[in-house]
């Protein structure tokens, strides 16, 4: 794992603004309004907020898939101008390659991207095999994505990301499409894969998007709360819960209190959005 020479934050948003022009009408929609955020190396940071708050837009800008309209997004002090293998992503809808097997999906980044350069075929294969085991997909290597359950597909998505060994892991509501039980299991496994029990310096930086408050609190070191119309950061909260986090974590009073605090921050807006559903077009979150 590479360590930056500077001691600044791993990722930084500096007065970031993102607007979209609506096709046809030409109207301008503000997706993100002047966001400032510094994300430390090895930190697990979660962004929560209602639909249309711009949380996914921020993640896409960190990935380099979208560029800000104003301000800068930087990694290790260098401006982000496009996607790169250092910033890998996991998608809500998995985005697995349907014509490739589980093994080939996980191998994809190493085979065609820069992080596999210099690896022999045998080294590459053994790294993929390790990742298959890491996410518990042993025995399913030769299956195609359509043969897997949602939970197993996302395990494959996570393994594809981890195998490529990015510096930063960007996760866009990865568990949103899964059932409640599978979610809980994958949350715990994600923390294990991230290295919760290991050395703090070995952990990668994670930016995780969700609209589930309990998920945000359970996983994170810090929670960024956003609000919509226009999308902006309204609060950044530290999560002082001991690691490793377990089932018992969820019953702790601090867990409940923090979840309640976050809920209070966004409750009015969620109710407004729920009752006005359909009347206003969101900016796409």
């Amino acid at each position: 794992m590479s360590h930056p020479a500077t001691t600044g934050p791993k990722l930084r948003l500096d007065a970031v603004r993102k607007t979209f022009t609506v096709p046809r009408s030409g109207a301008e929609v503000v997706a993100v309004e002047t966001a400032d955020l510094a994300i430390e190396a090895g930190e697990f940071l979660t962004i929560v907020g209602p639909s249309g708050c711009g949380k996914s837009t921020i993640l896409n800008m960190l990935a380099g898939l979208e560029l800000p309209t104003g301000g800068t997004v930087a990694m290790d002090g260098r401006k982000i101008t496009g996607p790169a293998a250092e910033r890998g992503m996991v998608f809500q809808d998995y985005a697995l390659f349907p014509w490739k097997t589980v093994f080939e999906n996980i191998e994809f980044g190493l085979r065609y991207g820069p992080h596999g350069k210099g690896l022999s075929t045998a080294e590459r294969r053994s790294r993929v095999a390790r990742c298959v085991e890491l996410v518990g997909l042993g025995g399913s290597e030769q299956k195609y994505p359509h043969e897997l359950s949602g939970g197993m597909r996302q395990r494959c998505g996570i393994a594809r990301l981890v195998a490529n060994e990015p510096d930063v892991l960007l996760m866009d509501e990865p568990f949103a499409a899964l059932d409640a039980q599978t979610r809980i299991i994958l949350q715990e496994e994600l923390l294990r894969i991230w290295g919760e029990t290991g050395d703090r310096a070995e952990r990668r930086t994670v930016v995780f998007i969700t609209h589930a408050i309990d998920e945000a609190v359970f996983l994170s070191d810090r929670v960024v709360v956003m609000s919509a119309h226009p999308g902006r950061i309204i609060e950044i909260l530290d999560v002082d819960l001991p690691r490793p986090r377990t089932d018992a974590t969820r019953t702790r009073p601090e867990f409940q209190a923090l979840s309640q605090t976050i809920w209070n921050l966004i409750r009015d807006e969620v109710y407004r959005a729920a009752t006005a559903a359909g009347s206003a077009g969101g900016a796409g979150d």
């Binding site: 990935a63 996607p83 790169a84 390659f97």
Partner: peptide, 29 residues
Amino acid sequence: VERRLVQAAQTLGVPQLTILRTVVLPAAL
């Protein structure tokens, strides 16, 4: 072609022309 598939390859660091061959071509097949 689903944009997400192309983005998945981009965030793995795969160059554009390789994406054309390894993602876009099979997805459009």
